[in-house]
Amino acid sequence: MTLPILYLSTFAVFLAIDFVGLSYIVKPIFERDIGPLMRDNFKVLPAFVFYAFFVGVLLWFVSWPAITANHSLWWVFGNALLMGGVAYGTYEFTNLAILKDWTTSMVVTDLVWGTLLTAVATTAGVAITRAVA
């Protein structure tokens, strides 16, 4: 029962926090810089696929090893911070390299947001699982 709790708690925290961040931190900057390219309503399926896959990867490389080896929450936070930096950095720096209207402020905002989001959600998922399971 531990693995489903770990996955669902991490997934729920990730979505809840990212909803706030995307709505109030990332979206205004993206609208300013690439507003005409943005959809009025985002597509749910591609977003769901990313979140579901990314949380699974985080569990594989960070959360499950932390649970089974009883690593500290600081260990979880640091390793998830690295994973978030890699994931969001890949997206942002690739876009900066190939898209003419991609801006440095978009890169910095989304990279910092995604990196911290990943670390906080992963750490919270492990903490919740330890408290409940």
Rank of each mutant, 00 (worst) to 15 (best):
D18N: 12
V20F: 09
V20W: 05
V20M: 04
L22K: 02
S23K: 14
I25K: 00
K27S: 14
P28I: 00
I29Y: 00
F30T: 07
F30M: 15
F30V: 08
F30G: 11
E31W: 10
R32L: 14
D33I: 05
D33F: 01
I34F: 13
P36Y: 04
P36G: 09
M38A: 09
D40R: 14
D40Q: 13
N41P: 00
F42H: 10
F42Q: 11
F42W: 06
K43E: 11
V44H: 01
V44R: 03
L45D: 02
A47F: 11
A47E: 00
A47W: 08
A47K: 10
F48Q: 06
F48H: 06
V49T: 09
F50N: 02
F50D: 01
A52S: 15
V55L: 06
V57Q: 11
L58G: 12
L58R: 00
L58F: 05
L59N: 08
W60E: 12
F61I: 04
F61V: 11
F61C: 02
V62W: 05
V62S: 08
S63H: 05
W64K: 15
P65H: 01
I67V: 15
T68C: 01
H71T: 06
H71C: 01
L73Q: 11
W74D: 10
W74H: 01
W75T: 05
W75V: 03
W75N: 09
V76S: 06
G78K: 12
G78W: 09
G78A: 13
A80P: 07
A80H: 09
L82P: 07
M83G: 11
G85A: 13
G85R: 10
Y88E: 12
G89V: 09
T90M: 15
Y91H: 14
Y91M: 14
Y91Q: 07
Y91N: 14
E92Q: 11
E92P: 02
E92R: 05
F93E: 03
F93Q: 02
T94Y: 07
T94Q: 07
N95T: 03
N95P: 08
L96D: 04
L96C: 08
A97E: 03
I98Q: 08
K100F: 03
D101F: 08
D101M: 05
D101I: 04
W102G: 14
S105N: 09
S105K: 14
M106R: 08
V107T: 15
V107H: 13
V108G: 06
V108C: 07
V108A: 13
V108S: 06
T109C: 12
T109Q: 03
D110M: 05
D110H: 10
V112Q: 03
W113Q: 01
L116T: 00
L116G: 00
L117R: 06
